[in-house]
């Protein structure tokens, strides 16, 4: 069971939910940029949420499936084409062996996830298969995928071969995940004000009205924002403290950086705030030159939105399992 990279993408890698519990050694969690999309991708093919998935950036890899597979494609819409025919996102798709999947155009979003039933074989380090680029560890040889790399699949846990229709190259199973809630108002990112918010001259209302553009130098480590340089009232230097995914740092230039999946564990720049977890999927789907606004909210709002998102995920996961089971019973 495997797929082969016939043409490599710009930055495609194996990732999972990341490695936690080692940050005090300077080893950051890493993992998928869009946790929500990756979780749904796994749910659609009845994998555990922790199974490794393929994270694609655009231009994305061209893939040859060497085996009959049950897959799902979630997150960014890069116009996936299976042997030239468009296939939908957020739905399980059965494909026959020797099918070629490629991605024509970046329609929407920045990171696309592919899950295969059973999950990918990947090397593990400290309890996670997420590729650690800097250390060149885990995932697929600790690096991004290159031409002719062969990704092995684990044994399927669902007997989906019975669902393949005679003569058809592929079939889209007739259920999908509704993900509107998590991606609505893609450019409005909520954050919880941090300890140095008062370093800025702008009050909350003025700050909310500002537009920030994502600079092309942004990557999995962080998003560099460009806007009118912020007026800073206070220049007291701070000593390094722990930071997290979504933390908004104020650089000496008056510009902001938002830390993303591969961020360092500690930082010594003033912390303006931290984006709420429920909006990290939206943030992960923004690309260079996209514009965003940062809107302060309370902890209570953040926790409520996160809780609802978790509920959505539970519901999606439960329904996906139910649908597939039902279909298998009929087959």
């Amino acid at each position: 069971m495997s797929l082969v990279i016939i043409k490599p993408g710009i930055l495609d890698s194996l990732q999972d939910m990341g490695r936690y519990g080692h940050s005090h050694w300077g080893i950051n969690p890493g993992g998928v940029m869009d946790v929500f999309a990756a979780t749904v991708a796994n749910a659609l093919v009845c994998n555990p949420a922790t199974a490794a998935v393929l994270e694609l950036h655009f231009p994305a890899s061209q893939l040859l499936f060497e085996q009959n597979s049950l897959i799902s494609i979630c997150g960014a819409d890069f116009t996936p084409l299976l042997d030239g025919a468009p296939i939908p996102l957020w739905q399980p798709v059965l494909i026959r062996k020797n099918s070629i999947l490629h991605f024509r155009k970046q329609q929407k979003g920045a990171r696309c996830y592919i899950a295969v039933q059973g999950g990918f074989e990947a090397s593990e380090w400290l309890g996670s298969c997420s590729t650690h680029f800097k250390l060149a560890l885990a995932g697929f040889n600790g690096r991004r995928l290159e031409k002719n790399d062969q990704l092995l699949f684990k044994e399927p846990t669902v007997y989906f071969a019975a669902l393949l229709t005679e003569g058809k190259r592929y079939s889209v199973l007739n259920w999908g995940a509704s993900v509107y809630n998590s991606y609505a108002w893609p450019n409005e990112i909520f954050f919880i004000p941090g300890p140095q918010m008062h370093y800025l001259a702008a009050n909350h209302k003025e700050f909310s009205a500002a537009n920030f553009t994502i600079h092309p130098s942004s990557d999995r480590m962080g998003y560099h924002l460009r806007g009118e340089a912020l007026t800073v009232n206070n220049t007291t230097e701070i000593i390094s403290t722990g930071v997290t995914r979504g933390t908004i740092q104020l650089l000496p230039s008056g510009q902001l950086v938002i830390l993303m999946a591969d961020h360092q564990t500690t930082g010594g720049y003033p912390i303006i705030g931290t984006c709420i977890q429920a909006h990290l999927p939206k943030l992960a789907q923004l690309s260079a030159s996209d514009v965003l606004q940062l809107l302060p909210v309370s902890i209570e709002v953040a926790e409520e939105l996160f809780y609802r998102q978790q509920q959505d995920l539970n519901l999606i996961t439960w329904n996906c399992h139910l649908h597939l089971k039902e279909l298998l019973c009929k087959a």
């Binding site: 000593i239 390094s240 403290t241 722990g242 500690t266 996160f306 809780y307």
Partner: peptide
């Protein structure tokens, strides 16, 4: 509780709010 990081004079806890709730 997911992670603990210490700075020079600080300690940061990383947690899953839904599990705690």
């Amino acid at each position: 509780l997911k992670d603990v990081v210490i700075g020079y004079a600080s300690c940061t806890l990383y947690y899953d709010a839904s599990i705690i709730k």
